[in-house]
């Protein structure tokens, strides 16, 4: 008897939809994906979407509105396994880079003028795990094709995904690059989750952190190191916070707090 195909839903909360687009961009594999799994819902790819029970939900985007939140809670309730895909879902994304709730409110007013929205209430952007249990994280901005396929195939086989848990530096050494930090360049490799095959440092460009914080991101040591190399405090914090989402909030508040 043939095993039932895994029921999968792909959802987008607040983000650029780049992760869903990347899945669509797996052109050579698309037929295989649709053949191997029962794709119940995938707004970017098809119109006959069914929002029922799911084996696996892949959710991109951050929770930035009340509507996002209600959708996420609903997806979580219907899904056995929930995977956060892309930086916005795993860490909060660029939109979560506001460090102070007051700063966020000021910005909201500055951008939108009036804050009473018509169809949903804005929330300060947060990653999925601020509200629901997340089973697996697939980082990247956007996610990487190869990492997505290896995650998906393992889920289809009933195994948990195995993604790198170390920072970019490991992959950077595998490619035998000369360390940019040691050359006095502001590189965020040590803070950033691996999986990109160190693509930027391999082209002599510093890591900007777009895979989000590595599991053991040591902000204190990197900050001190960059200060000793003569970088400006605000510049360091700005660079660090671009792709760190909410993960850096405590650290940045502490740095700013003690130095005031």
């Amino acid at each position: 008897m043939k095993k039932d195909k895994l029921k999968i839903g792909i959802y987008e909360l607040t983000g650029c939809a780049g992760d869903a687009l990347l899945i669509l961009d797996c052109e050579d594999e698309l037929i295989n994906i649709f053949h191997a799994a029962d794709i119940r819902s995938f707004l970017m790819a098809k119109s006959d979407n069914i929002d029922g029970e799911l084996d696996v939900a892949l959710v991109e985007g951050s929770v930035s509105t009340e509507r996002d939140l209600q959708e996420l809670l609903d997806i979580r309730k219907r899904s056995k396994v929930l995977v956060a895909i892309g930086l916005c879902a795993t860490a909060g994304g660029n939109q979560a880079a506001f460090l102070d709730p007051r700063e966020w409110e000021d910005n909201l007013k500055k951008v939108y003028g009036r804050t009473e929205m018509t169809h949903t209430k804005p929330l300060q952007s947060k990653p999925l795990n601020a509200y629901v249990k997340v089973d697996h994280y697939l980082p990247g901005c956007p996610i990487d094709r190869e990492q997505f396929l290896s995650t998906l195939t393992r889920l289809l086989a009933g195994h948990p995904p195995e993604l790198h848990r170390f920072p970019v530096c490991v992959e950077c050494k595998w490619r035998e690059n000369d360390c940019l930090l040691n050359r006095g360049i502001l590189c965020l490799g040590p803070l950033t989750a691996a999986g990109c095959r160190a693509v930027c440092p391999s082209h002599n460009l510093p890591c900007v952190g777009c895979w989000g914080p590595a599991e053991e991101a040591n902000y204190t040591a990197e900050y001190q190191l960059l200060m000793e190399k003569g970088f400006d405090r605000e510049m360091i914090l700005r660079k660090m916070s671009t792709f760190s989402g909410t993960a850096i909030a405590d650290f940045a508040a502490r740095i700013r707090g003690v130095k005031k």
Binding site: C179, P190, N218, E222
Partner: peptide, 26 residues
């Protein structure tokens, strides 16, 4: 420590390795 593993990667005698299965479709 940045826990970045660089010391091991560049060490001539470090030899530990991980094994990872990559599955494929079709």
């Amino acid at each position: 420590c940045l826990a970045c593993g660089s010391c091991s990667m560049v060490c001539p005698t470090c030899n530990c390795y991980n094994v990872l299965d990559k599955l494929a479709l079709g």
